[in-house]
């Protein structure tokens, strides 16, 4: 029986919630607005480290550090977006991937600030007491639900339709009376700052920050989850994360009772199943398991 209130279960569920939020934010960027962001881990990791550094090195109050960390991510996203968003999708892919690699490298090399591979810690929970981890889980739950609700509302709003129009045909969208470059830049900045917020809140979940957390695996996991779930749907990220990260990383890896000889095979098997799932979805449901159905629009 799974003990959902055990320390490890709370840690795992918190991690799953962060991935759901990241996948939903990626749905907004890619599925709705057509912005290719392969630097998810860069924004997430920058938020995490900025928060940790401001809190531990500079001794700032908890929520001041949190807000400043998100502001730093927003500023970096604004500058990066300003440079790359009007380029084509391949250029966006390479630039955002490179950005994430630079963040990971800086975290490793700038030891005076990040303590490098030794690691930065310990980041405390926002509230003390015996149930502090549970409170953090609840905060993550509320924020993740908030992101999904926002995604659903935005998809039906005039600004959401403008973003979809930009994704579909940007040249034509320029003739609709709105500055498409500015709309993309504002949206990319806000959604990337959202990734930074979930990064900052991941710091107390992880408690000890090391550069190996910032590998490209985070970005790839989020992309795979969104593609499996359905990039065009606000619930696509949630479904995808439940079917991939939750099942493989949480249920199977943690709770499946297997002979001890198999224990080393599970992580390898997990990666293979990840790959098989992705290939099957791309072959038979190229728009993800939720498909290409559209949200009802009769209220327009």
């Amino acid at each position: 029986m799974i003990d959902l209130l055990s320390g490890y279960a709370i840690f795992s569920l918190s991690t799953v919630l962060v991935f759901v939020a990241l996948a939903t934010l990626l749905h907004l960027q890619f599925g709705l607005a057509g912005i290719v962001n392969f630097g998810v881990v860069g924004f997430w990791g920058l938020g995490m480290y900025a928060f940790g550094i401001l809190l531990l090195n500079f001794q700032l109050p908890y929520f001041v550090a949190l807000i400043l960390a998100v502001a730093i991510v927003a500023l970096v996203a604004f500058v990066l977006g300003w440079v790359v968003l009007d380029l084509d999708s391949q250029a966006q892919l390479v630039a955002t991937l490179a950005f994430a690699a630079v963040i990971a490298d800086l975290v490793t090399t700038e030891k005076w600030l990040t303590k490098g591979v030794v690691g930065l810690g310990t980041v405390p929970h926002p509230f003390g007491g015996a149930q502090s981890a549970l409170w953090l889980l609840l905060i993550l739950l509320v924020l993740t639900v908030g992101v999904i609700v926002y995604a659903r509302l935005l998809g039906r709003s005039p600004f959401g339709r403008l973003l979809a129009a930009i994704r579909d045909n940007e040249v034509l969208a320029r003739n609709l009376g709105k500055d498409t470059s500015r709309a993309k830049l504002i949206f990319f900045t806000l959604t990337s700052a959202g990734m930074g917020l979930f990064g900052a809140l991941s710091a107390p979940v992880r408690q000890f920050l090391t550069p190996d957390l910032l590998g490209p695996g985070v970005t790839f996991s989020v992309w795979i989850a969104l593609i499996v779930g359905g990039k065009r749907w606000p619930l696509g990220g949630l479904l995808g994360v439940l079917l991939t990260i939750f099942v493989f990383d949480f249920l199977i890896e943690t709770y499946l009772r297997v002979p001890s000889d198999w224990a080393q095979i599970i992580p390898i098997l997990k990666l293979m199943l990840y790959g098989v799932t992705l290939v099957l979805v791309l072959l038979f449901r190229p728009f993800g398991l939720l498909g290409d159905r559209r949200q009802p629009t009769s209220h327009l």
Binding site: P158, L162, A165, D168, N169, R294, T297, L300
Partner: peptide
């Protein structure tokens, strides 16, 4: 001033209703 270009003059992935409603951004 509004233009209907010769090519690429609709948003193919959006519905008719959504295409038309985009005109109302101004």
């Amino acid at each position: 001033l509004a233009i209907v270009p010769q090519e690429g003059n609709i948003f193919p992935d959006l519905t008719v209703r959504e295409n038309l409603s985009l005109g109302a951004l101004v």
